[in-house]
Design a protein around this nucleic acid. Sequence first.
DNA 1: ATCAACTTCTACATAGTGTAGAAAGGAGTT
DNA 2: AACTCCTTTCTACACTATGTAGAAGTTGAT
Lengths: 122, 122
Amino acid sequence: MATLGELERSVMDVLWDSTDALTAGDIRDDLAHGNAEGVGKELAVTTVLTVLSRLEAKNFVTRERDSRPHLFSASTSRAAHMAELMHEVLGAAPDREAVLARFVGQVSPREADALRRILAGK
Amino acid sequence: MATLGELERSVMDVLWDSTDALTAGDIRDDLAHGNAEGVGKELAVTTVLTVLSRLEAKNFVTRERDSRPHLFSASTSRAAHMAELMHEVLGAAPDREAVLARFVGQVSPREADALRRILAGK
DNA sequence: ATCAACTTCTACATAGTGTAGAAAGGAGTT
DNA sequence: AACTCCTTTCTACACTATGTAGAAGTTGAT
């Protein structure tokens, strides 16, 4: 629904890549020397917390207030989020089938197969 | 690639809905009592021109400078644009097939059929 | 009661977008 | 050539989202 900025997106990536909930400090560290790209400048923890609050407000993140350093986790899976984004795009088009045709037309053969399989599975 | 604002998007919609190129004045009128929703407050032509310039800079719009009132047209079809957006979303995901699965999972039966047809057509 | 860690508040810079007036350009008319 | 009208470009400002973080407030532990 809402669009994510670059940092917000990075934070979400960290959360999506993690199996368990993380603290703001964890996330800051992951962002710094994280596996992802970007030199990863050291951010202040408050910066990360601000972003997390905003993400919480946007319902992208869930916060466990009981834990002392609050624990954060993504409220939706990345796949679900991405799929929703795609549906949003599609929903904004009057000519949905045309869009789908274009879309599928540019999909790799490998992915086309994946699509067939998925569709076969009803 | 670049994100479009609300007005930019409306202008693109006008252009996409038109078969031939339009002048800024045409577009302003279409926006006002256009077929689309929104009360359509009368905008200044300069406003429309500003937006058109920005859209041109973003390569969403082509301008014919020869015609006296310049003529504008969408440089890409709506379907192509939407499909590209979807690919952008998909491209940002590491687990593309998972996203596709989710996406297809939420597609209407009618559209699922459309997809099968499209995929069958190779 | 105090301290240290943590969270929330407040704040500011930047960029993108909506919006349009002021200034400038060009083509026809006198 | 000068004038005028229509059109375009320039300049400008407000508002929002986002990145960024210090200051202030809160709370558990000692």
